[in-house]
Design a protein around this nucleic acid. Structure first.
Lengths: 195, 195
DNA sequence: CCAATTCTGTAACGATCCCTAAAATATCGT
DNA sequence: ACGATATTTTAGGGATCGTTACAGAATTGG
């Protein structure tokens, strides 16, 4: 154990509490007072451990991608494009339906539109969304070269379309869509895959 | 002309300026200081003419639905379901592509996730989104009774799916999607209509 | 010209925003 | 036990938040 007074909190537990707040109320809608209350730490402890609000959000985002949003890279490992997309949407619905999770996706709810103070966070989320789309595109391109998808399939347009539906489902979830409704949307999205 | 000192500004012009700000930066991301600066009026004038920030947003929302978002009810007046949906997505893309308009749809960008202070606005936008979806659903139901859509078509699921794509396009626009990309998404959405 | 009315401009209110300085506390190695 | 180190607690700073009081300015009808 390093010298000095030991931490009275688990950084990962505190980070999870912060993630839930940012996820539910967005970056701008989450105050530091609300964060410290949910994380059960005082403001200086937060700053010592995680830095400013921006930097805390960055750490939350990294954790989000690794922990609840890992369904995306995992789904792309499926052997066929159809199974990959199926698992992708199943994973998304499963994540949102998780009782303890807020509605929607942090990449969308975090900061879709924001004021000047949150412009950096907003841009970072947009970049992350684009990376997700690109990952799906690469997987579909691979499927074409593997004769898994027909040669006339258009991976870029297809990935863009499917990811658009995914973000749209996040908006629907924010509006209170039920799991059954999200499942039916996902099923219809699957039908846009060429045979 | 009523007695008293006349207004030095046009309420509709001021409302348009407020709409652009709310649209671009969201409800929480738009401060009253930014509003008064863009509207070229002082704070007491704003409160006298439009009430509190919530009430101003409500008036902006009404104006948004009448002025740039009227493409939705207009599209539903088309004689066939296919033409209606086509005009719906064309109108959406056209609105977003308008140079002076922010990216996306105010119903999505306005307050998708928000803090406690903006909970009412958030709920109001969710309700408005749901009404839009219901309007499309009613139009598709009419198309089924008119033998315009096949009897096995499912208006509720179909409307939900198409509107999900529409909200997803708003997220894509917020991420910097080009008009061409949005057009291609719209074209793929049209293919989900049954023959 | 005057009273009544309504808007405008200046100023400021309390609350909350994000962030930090300083002192007290708890562990380390010696 | 003691200095060194790192965290906690308490307290508050400067800025901005949404909102409003108040006095001056511009119009009305008489």
């Amino acid at each position: 154990m390093p010298p000095g007074r030991p931490r009275a909190f688990d950084p990962d537990v505190a980070l999870d509490a912060a993630m839930l707040l940012f996820w539910r109320h967005g970056y701008e809608g989450t105050s530091l007072a609300a964060l410290t209350a949910a994380m059960n730490i005082n403001t200086p402890s937060l700053y010592a451990a995680f830095g400013t609000k921006d930097q805390l959000f960055q750490k939350v985002l990294e954790r989000y991608l690794q922990n609840p949003a890992s369904y995306l890279p995992n789904a792309l490992k499926e052997p066929t494009a159809r199974k990959a997309v199926q698992k992708l949407f199943d994973g998304a619905v499963h994540m949102v339906a998780h009782a303890r999770h807020p509605d929607g996706c942090l990449l969308v709810q975090g900061a879709l539109a924001a004021g000047p103070a949150a412009a950096a966070v907003r841009q970072q989320l947009a970049d992350t969304r684009r990376r997700a789309q690109l990952a799906l595109q690469r997987r579909l391109e691979r499927a074409v070269t593997e004769r898994d998808l027909p040669p006339h399939a258009h991976p870029q347009k297809l990935a863009r379309f499917l990811i658009t539906i995914l973000w749209g489902m996040s908006v629907q979830a924010a509006g209170g869509a039920s799991r059954r409704e999200l499942d039916e949307i996902a099923a219809m999205a699957l039908e846009s895959l060429p045979n």
